[in-house]
């Protein structure tokens, strides 16, 4: 290789950037030299093939401590009883927790269930998931279609719909609580307009409606963004071909847009389904699960059973969370299958 003439190593001649990069290079070499002896020693012990495990080890340790271990612990908690935290103090009860959870005369009548709260939460969650996912997909699709069209200040509107996604769930809930509570903004407007005050958060149906509304409001931007990307991936000339074919607008939507958006749409459905099953934070702050248990969903049930009640029923909560995990696992597998399918076709 041809040697270029070395620039003078005079510190005064070099720019800050050069000095910085030289410093960085020096630090890097220093670090590498410092790491050399211990790693060489390890390699001497474990051999060159073993080094692979050494390098993977930090990640594996983090994974086992923060993912695998809690999962195993959760299974163990589910199989043991009492309110004790320490595993050694918990008596083994087999599947008692599961059978207690599933002890129902009629799964559609929560009052016939031994763990009526669990089943109330399940029923609420199922209804919530059905309504929320439907509303989420429909509204985010409409939003994406509008944002994909010729619109004034399109960038502005795209940002507006995405902003709630950036808010912390607690902030979202507090904002809406402030709007919806008894002396909130919305009631103030209603009363100014000569209407009666409405118990938005203390009437079971209203408060269920608002949990759906607020969670859709908070996350819709995310899904609209995914759908927007999907819409933009549809080649424009297909629409022109359809235009030349004299296709009516609604037919273009159902025969061109929807089929070509289907893989994206399915991902959105599955993602929002999983998120809806996990719904907790906004709702817990917004309604606390009330009134009564009208907006108590499955994750809140698990949390309260395990931690908020004075007697911590850890086993029951662990069993419930395993059941939810199974449901989520099925949904996730479904998503993987669909996205894999989408890629191959």
């Amino acid at each position: 290789m041809k040697q270029n003439a070395q620039p003078p190593l005079d510190a005064e001649m070099s720019t800050t950037a050069e000095r910085f990069s030289r410093g960085f290079a020096l630090a890097y070499t220093g670090l590498m030299r410092a790491l050399e002896p211990p790693f060489a020693a390890i390699q001497k012990r474990v051999g060159i093939k073993g080094m692979a495990y050494v390098f993977v080890a930090p990640n594996m340790i983090i994974f086992s401590v923060f993912v695998a271990l809690p999962m195993i612990l959760n299974i163990w908690y589910a199989l043991t009883g009492s309110n004790r935290l320490m595993i050694g103090e918990r008596p083994f009860v087999g599947l008692d927790n599961f059978s207690a959870l599933l002890d129902c005369k009629d799964y559609l009548d929560v009052n016939s269930c031994k763990q009526d709260r669990f089943w109330r939460a399940v029923h609420n969650s199922v209804l919530f998931v059905a309504l929320q996912v439907t509303a989420m997909v429909a509204l985010s699709l409409v939003t994406a279609l509008i944002l994909n069209g010729k619109l004034r200040a399109r960038g502005f509107f795209r940002a507006v719909f995405f902003f709630p996604v950036l808010l912390s769930p607690v902030v979202v809930a507090l904002i809406w609580k402030w709007i919806l509570q008894r002396d909130g903004l919305l009631n103030a407007f209603l009363m100014d307009g000569g209407f009666e005050r409405v118990a938005f958060l203390h009437d079971a149906s209203w408060s269920f409606f608002w949990t759906v509304f607020v969670s859709v409001w908070a996350h819709m931007g995310f899904y609209a963004l995914i759908l927007l990307a999907g819409l933009q991936a549809i080649p424009a000339d297909l629409y022109e071909a359809a235009e030349m074919d004299g296709t009516p607008k609604w037919r273009v939507f159902w025969r061109i847009t929807v089929p070509l958006l289907l893989p994206t749409l399915l991902v959105v459905v599955i993602l929002s389904l999983i998120r809806a099953v996990q719904a907790f934070d906004e709702i817990y702050v917004l309604t606390g699960g009330g009134p009564g248990t009208a907006t108590q969903f499955i994750v809140q049930y698990i949390y309260e059973t395990a931690f908020a009640n004075q007697v911590h029923l850890l086993g029951l909560a662990a069993a419930a969370s395993l059941l939810v995990a199974v449901v989520l696992m099925v949904l996730t597998l479904l998503q993987l299958r669909i996205s894999y399918h989408g890629k191959t076709s």
């Binding site: 958060l201 309604t287 606390g288 009134p291 108590q296 809140q300 004075q310």
Partner: peptide
């Protein structure tokens, strides 16, 4: 008594 107080939380939560 108003439902707005006890109804604003669920479970055993204090209000």
């Amino acid at each position: 008594m108003s439902k707005a107080l006890w109804g604003s939380v669920g479970g055993t939560a204090y209000r």
